[in-house]
């Protein structure tokens, strides 16, 4: 259920993102999803990759500020209102998100979420019969 996200702190300098993606590409690591949070000075690149442990090691060896974080992947139908329903459920229960990002994949829409309380979030979603993607499935998308 719980998936590993890899994040990298990057200064806003040209070419840094290229370096990260090239390193991963050369190692045969595929990117399933990613997002960047940024301000004028730095950005935080967050990625779901095919092999998080390996990606972490490669980036660390190249002295990137890489970090592994536990996240969840909520999978809902790619239809209007589906995400709203899931989010309302969680906010009603008082679950907060540090951040989230989404990607659609044909009939389904996947949302990577970083809740403040991951175990509780899982319980709520499972009780509501909402689908959480298994980490191994997520990495293979």
């Amino acid at each position: 259920m719980i998936a590993q996200q890899i994040s990298v702190f990057l200064e806003n300098k040209s070419g840094r993102l290229t370096e990260v993606t090239s390193l991963l590409g050369e190692a045969g690591i595929n990117l399933t999803a990613f997002s960047i949070a940024e301000n004028s000075e730095f950005g935080i690149l967050r990625m779901i990759v095919s092999d998080p442990e390996k990606a972490y090691k490669i980036l660390k060896d190249a002295h990137f500020a890489a970090k592994l974080t536990d996240v969840l992947c909520l999978s809902c139908p790619n239809t209007p209102g589906a995400l709203a329903k899931a989010l309302k459920l969680l906010s009603d229960e008082g679950v907060f998100f540090e951040y989230m990002y989404a990607f659609a994949n044909g009939e389904t829409a996947n949302v990577i979420i970083r809740p403040d309380n991951i175990e509780r979030c899982i319980t709520i979603l499972q009780e509501a019969k909402l689908q959480l993607l298994a980490a191994s499935d997520l990495y293979r998308l």
Binding site: S7, A37, F42, R46, A65, K67, E98, R114
Partner: peptide
């Protein structure tokens, strides 16, 4: 920063 002090969260930075 120390390698383990970098966070995935903006607010931590």
């Amino acid at each position: 920063a120390r390698p383990d002090a970098y966070s995935d969260n903006m607010n931590d930075i």
